[in-house]
Simulated scan of single mutants.
Amino acid sequence: MRDVVTEAPGTLEVRGLSIAHEGKVLLDVPHLCLDGPGPTLILGPNGAGKSLLLRCLHGLIQPDRGRVCQNGVLLNASHKARQAMVFQRPVLLRRSVAANLDFVLKRKSMPRVQRKPRIDDLLAEGGLDGKARQPARSLSGGEAQRLAILRALALDPETLFLDEPTSALDPSATQMIERMVLRASAQGVRIVMVTHDIGQARRLATEIVMMQAGRVVEQGLARQVLEAPKSDESRRYLDGGLVT
């Protein structure tokens, strides 16, 4: 676990969040508050509702009931403009690596004279500086995910949501993305990341949100949750037991 080095942006809070489908409860979160610095990792078995919660926090899915607030105000377009999200499978534009970044910067109304040096800096940050002219969709899986993260960071978000960004990657590619995540966090970006990898949670997390069956069963500092979990569900999951 890493030491806290910055203060996170304002409070992101969930109250009475509920989603059901055909009589089955998919998400039931009476209250969740994210207000600390450092990466928050959402951990739990498949089907726990991790990705669904992430999409609600980003405003991509409207819950059946409940609300998501930023600094006490209902999540709105202004808040979402200061957020970014990277999915498990990156979606890249049919253009070059550099042009993918230029597209985002242009939409931010960054002057053309400033975009080129900013793109160069981003490519260097992601280890893609030799691939600026390469078609983005010809990148390897790890390279594509790094470009997706760079494109999100080009928005200068206050909060970056990551949905299992390394789930299909080898250890080397995973390590490069984890370094990017930690650098972004150290620069003041709040990271909220879904993972099923307990080792990754140990390497990255300052805070853990543990989920099972659509519920938050535990939340706390990473060291406390990972080394001395309070809930039976967390203990079974962290011990490698079968969790349904």
Results as ranks from 00 to 15, higher is better:
Ser96Ala: 11
Ala98Gln: 10
Ala98Tyr: 00
Asn100Ala: 08
Leu101Gly: 05
Leu101Pro: 07
Leu101Val: 10
Phe103Asn: 11
Leu105Ser: 06
Lys106Leu: 12
Lys106Ala: 15
Lys106Cys: 13
Arg107Tyr: 01
Lys108Ser: 06
Met110Pro: 00
Arg112Asn: 08
Gln114Tyr: 04
Gln114Asn: 12
Gln114Ala: 15
Lys116Cys: 01
Pro117Val: 09
Arg118Trp: 10
Ile119Trp: 02
Ile119Pro: 06
Asp120Tyr: 00
Asp120Phe: 00
Asp121Glu: 15
Gly126Phe: 09
Gly127Phe: 08
Leu128Phe: 02
Gly130Cys: 10
Gly130Tyr: 05
Ala132Val: 04
Arg133His: 10
Arg133Leu: 12
Ala136Tyr: 02
Leu139Cys: 02
Leu139Ile: 04
Ser140Ala: 01
Gly141Cys: 03
Ala144His: 10
Ala144Met: 07
Leu147Met: 10
Leu147Tyr: 08
Ala148Arg: 05
Leu150His: 12
Leu150Glu: 13
Leu153Arg: 05
Ala154Phe: 08
Ala154Asn: 11
Leu155Val: 12
Leu155Ile: 04
Asp156Val: 07
Pro157Cys: 13
Glu158Cys: 02
Glu158Pro: 00
Glu158Arg: 10
Thr159Trp: 06
Leu160Trp: 01
Leu160Tyr: 02
Phe161Gln: 09
Glu164Cys: 03
Thr166Asp: 06
Leu169Pro: 08
Asp170Asn: 04
Asp170Val: 05
Asp170Lys: 08
Pro171Met: 06
Pro171Ala: 03
Pro171Val: 02
Ala173Met: 05
Met176Thr: 12
Ile177Ala: 09
Ile177His: 04
Glu178Tyr: 07
Arg179Lys: 12
Arg179Gly: 11
Met180Tyr: 05
Met180His: 08
Val181His: 02
Ala184Thr: 08
Ser185Asn: 10
Ala186Pro: 02
Gln187Ile: 01
Gly188Asn: 10
Val189Gln: 03
Arg190Tyr: 02
Ile191Ala: 02
Thr195Pro: 13
